[in-house]
Amino acid sequence: MFHPLRVHAIERLTDDSVAVTLAVPPELRETFRHKPGQHLNVRYAADGEEIRRSYSICSPATDDAADPVVRIGIRLVDGGTFSTYALKELAVGDLIEAMPPTGRFVLIPRAGRFAAIVGGSGITPVLSIAGTLLERKRDATFCLIRSDRTAGSTMFLDEVADLKDRYPDRFQLVTVLSREEQQAGLPSGRLDRDRLDTLLPALLPVTEVDGWFLCGPLGLVRAAEDALRGLGVDRTRVHQEIFHVDDGPAAPARPGPDAPAHSRLTATLDGRSGTWPVQDGDSLLETVLRSRSDAPYACKGGVCGTCRAFLVSGEVRMDRNFALEPEETDAGYVLACQSHPATPEVELDFDR
Rank of each mutant, 00 (worst) to 15 (best):
F2D: 10
R6G: 00
R6M: 12
H8E: 14
S17V: 03
V18E: 08
A19R: 13
V20N: 00
L22E: 04
L22S: 03
L28W: 13
E30R: 13
F32T: 01
Q38K: 04
Q38S: 03
Q38D: 02
N41P: 01
N41H: 06
G48V: 02
G48K: 07
R53S: 10
S54H: 13
Y55M: 06
I57S: 01
P68M: 03
V69Y: 03
I72D: 05
G73Q: 10
T81L: 14
F82R: 01
T84A: 14
T84F: 03
Y85H: 15
K88S: 12
E89P: 02
A91K: 14
G93L: 11
G93F: 10
I96M: 15
A98P: 08
A98Q: 07
P101M: 13
F105A: 00
I108A: 09
I108W: 05
G112D: 04
G119H: 02
G122D: 05
T124A: 09
T124S: 09
I129P: 02
G131M: 05
E135D: 14
A140C: 07
R146L: 09
R149W: 07
R149V: 15
T154C: 11
F156E: 07
D158Q: 15
V160N: 05
A161Q: 15
D162L: 15
L163A: 00
P168T: 13
D169Y: 10
L173Q: 15
V174T: 13
L177E: 03
E181T: 14
A184T: 15
S188V: 03
G189P: 06
R190E: 08
L191K: 02
D192A: 14
D194T: 13
R195E: 13
L199Q: 03
E208V: 03
V209H: 04
V209R: 04
G211K: 12
F213T: 11
F213C: 08
C215P: 12
G216E: 05
G219E: 13
R222N: 10
E225F: 08
E225P: 01
D226C: 05
L228T: 05
R229Y: 02
L231K: 05
L231C: 10
R235V: 14
R237S: 10
V238H: 07
H239G: 01
I242S: 09
F243Q: 00
F243E: 09
P249I: 09
A250D: 15
P252E: 14
P255W: 08
P257W: 06
P257L: 11
H262I: 04
R264V: 14
L265R: 00
L269S: 08
G271T: 11
G271C: 10
R272D: 12
D282W: 12
L284A: 08
T287E: 05
S291G: 08
R292E: 15
D294S: 15
A295T: 01
P296H: 05
G302D: 00
F310P: 02
G314W: 02
E315R: 09
V316M: 04
R317K: 15
M318K: 04
R320M: 09
E327I: 14
T329I: 11
T329E: 09
T329A: 04
V334A: 01
L335D: 05
L335Y: 03
C337D: 11
Q338K: 05
H340N: 04
V346Q: 12
L348T: 06
D349I: 05
D349N: 12
F350W: 12
D351C: 06
R352T: 12
